[in-house]
C-alpha cells in the first residue's frame, strides 16, 4: 500500500512519464502551453507603443492602481488622475477576434486572456462599460423633435388627407 507521503512523488513521476510520452494529441499540438493542457494567454495588443507604467508592473499591480484611485474618485470626486478604467478601455478595447470588421469593441480579448488563465474572475465590466468613451457618446442625449416638427407632420398628414378623394 502506498504511504500518503509518497503520493505526491508518485503523482509527479506519473505526470513526468506521461509528459515524456507526449500523452494526448492536444499536448503535442499545443505549443502555446506549459503543461500541455491550458493554453498560455495571448492578450490582444492595445493602442500605442506602451502603457502608462512598465508592462511588468502593470501586469502585477494594475488592480491596485485602479482600486486605490477609484475610491478617491467615487468618494471625493478627484478626477483626471493617472489611472483610470476609462483609459484602460480607450486603448485595450478591440474587436472580437475573427470579427475585425465588427463595430462593437470589447476588452475581453485583452483582459480575458490572463484572467481566464489564472482563473481570476474580473468584476469591473459587470457594471462598467467596456466600450470606449467616444463610441458610447455617439448615442448620447439629443433634444427631442420640437413642436414645430410635430405640427409640420400633422400638417402634412392633414394635407395628404385633403388631397386624397
Amino acid at each position: 500500500m502506498t504511504r500518503p507521503r509518497d503520493l505526491p512523488r508518485r503523482l509527479a513521476a506519473t505526470l513526468a512519464v506521461l509528459l515524456l510520452c507526449g500523452v494526448g494529441a492536444d499536448a503535442a499540438d499545443n505549443k502555446d502551453s506549459i503543461d500541455g493542457r491550458v493554453p498560455l494567454p495571448r492578450p490582444a495588443k492595445g493602442k500605442g507603443e506602451s502603457c502608462i507604467e512598465p508592462t511588468a508592473s502593470m501586469r502585477r499591480y494594475h488592480m491596485d492602481y485602479l482600486a486605490h484611485q477609484r475610491d478617491e474618485t467615487v468618494r471625493q470626486g478627484i478626477r483626471g488622475r493617472k489611472y483610470s478604467l476609462k483609459e484602460c478601455v480607450a486603448c485595450h478595447a478591440v474587436p472580437e477576434p475573427g470579427q475585425e470588421e465588427a463595430k462593437t469593441l470589447t476588452v475581453e480579448p485583452f483582459c480575458g486572456q490572463c484572467h481566464t488563465y489564472a482563473a481570476v474572475r474580473i468584476d469591473c465590466f459587470e457594471c462598467h462599460t467596456d466600450k470606449p468613451v467616444d463610441k458610447a457618446r455617439r448615442t448620447g442625449w439629443q433634444a427631442p423633435p420640437q413642436k414645430e416638427s410635430r405640427r409640420a407632420r400633422l400638417g402634412a398628414h392633414l394635407g395628404a388627407l385633403e388631397r386624397s378623394p
Partner: peptide, 28 residues
Amino acid sequence: DVAEQRPHAPRGKGTVESCTLCVHRIDA
C-alpha cells in the same frame, strides 16, 4: 442584468442606484 452602460455611469445588477445629480458633469 445591465448592458450598454454609459462610461460615466456604471450600473450593475444587485446594487442600489439613484440620481447622482450628474456628478460626472458637475466635476467637469
